[in-house]
């Protein structure tokens, strides 16, 4: 414990720490925070947090699943798989997420309602809401960015590993499952941590298509109470805390995975 605190025991760091504590105390004292209990009690803050976190978790999981195949197609697929995969990744990486989001929600979403048979089907209960479009866009975006990352990771695994696996008579799927994918994932972990933070920072955009995430809640508070800065400051602090948790999780993961890369 003492050893952990030692890096902080320098004069300028103590001064900075004091300044930071002072700034926080000033914020707590001089700014308006009386709106917090209202919005905590009516559940809006928790709803927003839940939406943000679940959008992140689901788009991360589904997106990474697609990304593995996109990376694999680009790294070793035949041209009729590699070319579309590369095109998809370039398309996603070359256009702003906001444009993609609005394209899916306003463009495709408004097309759906022109067809009566869609409006009368079971899917309409989901298609008329905003979150499926948000989730789909975020998932496709994550898949596009990570597909490129996974391509590099697959190509980075030493050829000898795959050759010896083949020499042992492993089937192609077993090679992927036992040899290729684990080593690729191991290489990609540090990058993946950063990309996860980027994905978290992409989620507030869904507020522009009326999904009630954390950012949207802060905008609601600002419009209701005319308090300008305080909700934004709290929002920034919450995002920083989530980022911190993500960084810690990935640091723990990297420590768990043996890091001796041949």
């Amino acid at each position: 414990m003492i050893a952990a605190l030692r890096p902080m025991m320098k004069t300028h760091r103590l001064v900075m720490l004091g300044l930071a504590v002072g700034a926080v105390a000033w914020c707590a004292y001089a700014l308006r925070w009386d709106w917090i209990p209202t919005y905590w009690n009516n559940g809006l803050i928790l709803t927003g947090l839940e939406t943000t976190l679940s959008l992140l978790a689901f788009s991360w999981t589904i997106g990474l699943f697609f990304a593995i195949w996109l990376g694999l197609a680009q790294a070793s697929g035949p041209w009729y798989l590699a070319l579309p995969a590369k095109g998809f990744c370039s398309l996603i990486r070359g256009t702003p997420l906001l444009l993609q989001l609005w394209f899916f929600y306003y463009g495709i979403g408004s097309t759906f309602q022109q067809f009566p048979w869609i409006r009368h089907s079971w899917a309409w209960t989901y298609l008329r809401e905003a979150w499926p479009y948000a989730l789909m866009t975020l998932t496709l975006s994550f898949a596009g960015y990570e597909g490129e990352v996974m391509r590099g990771a697959f190509l980075g695994v030493p050829k000898g590993q795959l050759e010896s696996a083949r020499a042992f008579g492993m089937t192609r799927f077993t090679i992927l499952r036992r040899i290729w994918l684990p080593q690729a994932v191991q290489r990609v972990l540090p990058t993946l941590g950063g990309e996860t933070v980027l994905q978290l920072k992409a989620t507030p955009l869904v507020a522009t298509i009326t999904v009630v995430d954390l950012y949207n809640v802060s905008q609601t508070v600002r419009q209701d109470t005319y308090v300008i800065y305080e909700p934004l400051l709290l929002l920034a602090a919450v995002y920083m805390a989530i980022t911190g948790v993500i960084v810690l999780i990935f640091r723990w993961l990297e420590h768990r995975v043996p890091s001796k890369v041949a």
Partner: peptide, 8 residues
């Protein structure tokens, strides 16, 4: 780098 660009 920890806070969303939109918020910043």
């Amino acid at each position: 780098r920890a806070v969303p660009e939109l918020v910043e």
